[in-house]
Design a binder for these strands. Structure first.
Lengths: 212, 212
DNA sequence: CCCAATACTAGAACAGGTTGCAATTCTCGT
DNA sequence: ACGAGAATTGCAACCTGTTCTAGTATTGGG
């Protein structure tokens, strides 16, 4: 990719800050929705490379400059898409307790379901994981949000009422391993089975103590 | 308690295959060396963005087309640089047993030393970790080499004579967590202290069982 | 030593992310 | 309803990774 040397920020701050997705006029919310929709559609069809800024803008029916006003870079755009999707998933998961007798079982169940879902849309998964991993400091806030969502998903699966610091740490470690394995799967360095096995091992080692 | 001391192999294997180092005429080997040298110098000075293909070519004294003949993309180039550096580190580490009474102690020591070294060259670290994470399937072979080097480094630190599959799995999990935390540090989402703490937790949870 | 194959060079050209800008359209407070 | 300021548009331009070409230098097998 051709990333230009950093200079003075070109466009004013994005209209919609991460904290208040609901902000802006209805027209603006709709533009934002169309942009993310276009992004996810293109990513699903052809992965990271297919998410071309001109193509996203055209498909969303906005000018290129407007796209950049809403999302200051391609990586911001994709990570925002990831956060959106992850938020939907989390909402569904938190609606009910996870089945399973032990924390390890429940975490593995949640990981398994998500992994299977991600593997069903390999291009989308590739686009989002690569953007997430490539994100630099300017995307830190969005990346942090994704991390928080993942952490919540895993602590919820662990089934702790109020997550202690150590609970959160363990969730983070599991999340790190999950992500690394997704990357390995996306780049064909690990099979779906490898991913499941490694997650199972990690969870067993990290969580088995709490169930006895 | 204190388990068997880790042992240095009598004749350490070279970290890169001879075929690779030995390939080509002396002039070609020298060009390759100059290219990687230029890459690391630019990365050290300005990170991922400063490693510009035209700049690397000029600094190495080769034409742009030649640079692409040696390394088919910027990511290949940087990951090759990473493998080179990691190979040097591994060579030094494997020369002697690692100090420490338990596998956990030794692994933490090795991780600590490397983490400190990486944090001394933040731009270089940023360039290499981002390239590594952004690598797509065409770089799989180089990425795999880096993974193997990391795995060897960690199993060596664990001090096992002959790494079992589970040993390797554990090493891989630790490597994954290490990498994730480096990325988090590079992007200012985690402090140096955070990284050390999380690695300590991970190693404790994954390795404490083997030391009792 | 000679020649064909291969490698190298300089530079143009192309692709896609990002920025700049002038003109137009919206929005909103009064 | 009105006018100022903000948002949007349509394009052109710019930057850097990557590819291509035509010409020149090296090299290795005979």
């Amino acid at each position: 990719m051709a990333e230009r040397a950093p200079r003075t920020p070109a466009h004013p701050r994005p209209v919609v800050s991460l904290a208040e997705v609901e902000a802006g006029s209805p027209a603006q919310r709709d533009r934002r929705r169309r942009i993310l929709e276009a992004t996810l559609a293109l990513a699903t069809k052809g992965g990271f490379d297919a998410v071309q800024m001109r193509a996203v803008a055209e498909r969303a029916g906005v000018a290129l400059g407007t796209l950049y006003r809403y999302f200051p870079s391609k990586v911001h755009l994709l990570v925002a898409g990831l956060a959106l999707e992850l938020g939907r998933v989390l909402e569904r998961i938190e609606r009910a307790p996870v089945a399973g007798d032990t924390a390890a079982d429940r975490v593995l169940l949640v990981l398994h379901r998500n992994t299977v879902a991600l593997q069903r849309d390999p291009h989308l998964t590739e686009a989002m994981t690569r953007a997430f991993m490539f994100a630099d400091t300017s995307v830190a806030e969005e990346v942090r949000q994704v991390s928080r969502l993942t952490e919540r998903m895993l602590t919820h699966a662990m089934g702790v009422e109020e997550a202690s610091e150590e609970d959160k740490d363990i969730a983070r470690v599991i999340g790190d391993v999950w992500l690394s394995n997704l990357v390995a799967w996306v780049t064909h360095r690990a099979s779906a089975e490898d991913v499941e096995n490694r997650l199972a091992l990690t969870v067993r080692l990290l969580l088995s103590a709490r169930d006895r």
